[in-house]
Design a protein around this nucleic acid. Structure first.
Length: 487
RNA sequence: GGUCUCGUGGCCGAGUGGCUAGGCAGCGGUCUGCAAAACCGCCUACAGCGGUUCGAUUCCGCUCGAGACCUCCA
């Protein structure tokens, strides 16, 4: 198996990837909170970890991929006074909380399918794992790292820090944190402002609630990932992923919870994708540049000049390294769209090529370069650059300016299929055209070429222009005329 | 205010102590009845100021600028 290096946030460095029990890999990724439409911010981690998942599978690992659906109990900001996000939305819309969660879960899954993101092996719901979460809180209480106040359970960060360093992931220090935390709901109950809730007692108007030994309430917002990760991947597993914004406090709290309960560090490799911006600005509900995925796909948003194919968004994301910030602009997306189209056309060319002689290109080297890039912390932009380099050779062969042998031809086909489709998950919507359409087009092409031969360009151009108006493009080359649908 | 990340050519984005990705746009050419596509060539940048070095875009320091987290968010 190839040597894969991944950037581990825990060490702030690239490390050789060595799973606990190869060939098995346990991977947990923080999924969406389903209280609203999927947006651009959801696409980045989904595509990033889809790439990682696909590449690990390609390398021969057997991956158990868990991505949760958060459908309970995250606290809102002070304007909402600790009200549950989903409950709040439900009241506004006068429906059951689980109905809201279901609707947006469905919507999220549809978006993921459009982006060709593979389904995780397990997609657990937080609401379906309340007993596991309660049991986990009990373990932490038994270990002495939590305390109960009026039906709520809080994690005792200072006590924990005395035995285990708190902040190993985010690089934060407890004394620095103490001075920079602000007042939140329930603060007076906590011994320290740093402590976080493991279980929250529900206020009377709070409609999402479950029974527990401490109160009718709901789990703290770091609890579900710890409980469900443990349940499906064990007390220690290989990869935990998510957005950089989750680094603190969410992932830090997850480590503390697990160490408090088990004495073991739960995760070997912490992987974090960077954030996206829109026109150089952070995307935020308050900034008015919040674009949902459906708006992207339809183009219905005031800051979009056109609709974007989900594959273009996927390709755009893959063209940047996952640990860099990525800026979405119309210009950049359009550029990506053209690049992607060129790539697909090259693959199509490759499909129709036949061997012509000696190859003047080293396909094995191309393959090695692509893998080298991917093994260096999943550097998809560099791998894509190599594929574009190969494209030039393919087109030269098409133009008769280079030659290719059968072996190289087969090898290139395998490489492009493997990387573009299998690993990058890029698909062209070359839906198998019905035979009848191919026959019709063949006829039209023949008619037009007859006209061209007779220098009846009025007729030949009429055929081409009218087909163009219908969305079909004709392309003349030495080998003859080809056609395709064009947007 | 604290912690951290980053600043690359018209735009997007890799990467490196000397050999300086890739995409898009632009310009010139080849091909073509024309067009499109493709191919060839050109445009060769690393915020600013110091320092280390034979040599720095790449290492160090400072300045300026942007962003993330600390507080719901991917």
């Amino acid at each position: 198996m190839r040597s894969l290096y991944v950037y581990n946030t825990l060490s702030r460095d690239r490390e050789l990837f060595e799973p606990e029990t190869p060939p098995f890999v346990g991977m947990y990724v923080c999924g969406p909170t389903v209280y609203g439409e999927g947006h651009l911010g959801h696409a980045r981690p989904a595509v990033t970890f889809d790439l990682i998942y696909r590449y690990l599978l390609h390398l021969g690992y057997r991956v158990r991929y868990v991505r949760n659906i958060t459908d309970v109990g995250h606290l809102e900001n002070d304007a909402d006074e600790g009200e549950d996000k989903i409950a709040k939305k439900a009241r506004l819309e006068q429906v059951e909380p689980m109905e809201v969660a279901q609707r947006y879960t469905n919507s999220y899954r549809e978006n993921m399918r459009a982006l060709n993101v593979l389904s995780p092996g397990i997609e657990p719901l937080a609401s379906g794992h309340i007993p596991e979460q309660i049991a986990y809180v009990e373990r932490i209480l038994e270990a002495g790292y939590a305390y109960v106040v009026d039906g709520s359970v809080y994690f005792d960060v200072e006590k924990y820090n005395a035995d285990h360093p708190y902040g190993i992931l985010s690089g934060r220090r407890i004394d620095e944190l103490q001075t920079s935390t602000r007042q939140l709901d329930g603060q007076d109950e906590k011994r320290s402002s740093l402590d976080f809730a493991l279980w929250k007692k529900a206020s009377p108007e709070h409609i999402m609630r479950w029974k527990s030994p401490w109160s009718d309430g709901f789990p703290g917002w770091h609890m579900e990932c710890t409980a469900m990760g443990t349940k499906y991947l064990g007390e220690t597993f290989d990869i935990h992923g998510g957005g950089m914004d989750l680094l603190f406090p969410h992932h830090e709290a997850e480590i503390a919870q697990a160490v408090a309960a088990t004495g073991k560090k739960p995760v070997k490799y912490w992987l974090h994708n960077n954030m996206i911006t829109i026109n150089g600005q952070k995307m935020g509900k308050s900034l008015g540049n919040f674009i949902t995925l459906n708006e992207f796909f339809s183009g219905e948003h005031k800051s979009l000049t056109q609709a974007y194919d989900p594959m273009v968004i996927r390709f755009f994301i893959l063209q940047a390294h996952y640990r860099s910030t990525l800026d979405f602009t119309n210009e950049a997306l359009q550029a990506a769209g053209k690049g992607l189209k060129r790539l697909f056309e090259g693959v199509n060319t490759l499909k129709n090529l036949s061997h012509t002689g000696k190859a003047s290109f080293d396909a094995a080297q191309l393959e090695a370069q692509c893998h080298q890039a991917m093994c260096d912390d999943f550097n998809s932009p560099v791998a894509l650059a190599h594929l574009f380099d190969g494209l030039r050779y393919i087109n030269q062969v098409k133009d008769g300016k280079a030659t290719i042998d059968q072996h190289t031809l087969d090898h290139l086909r395998t490489i492009y299929n493997t990387f573009l489709h299998e690993i990058f998950g890029l698909t062209s919507e070359e839906s198998g055209n019905p035979d009848v359409l191919n026959r019709v087009m063949e006829t039209l092409i023949n008619l037009r070429n007859d006209a061209r031969k007779n220098k009846d360009f009025a007729t030949s151009d009429k055929i081409r222009d009218e087909l163009a108006a219908a969305g079909i493009v004709m392309k003349d080359s030495k080998e003859g005329t080809t056609w395709q649908f064009e947007g």
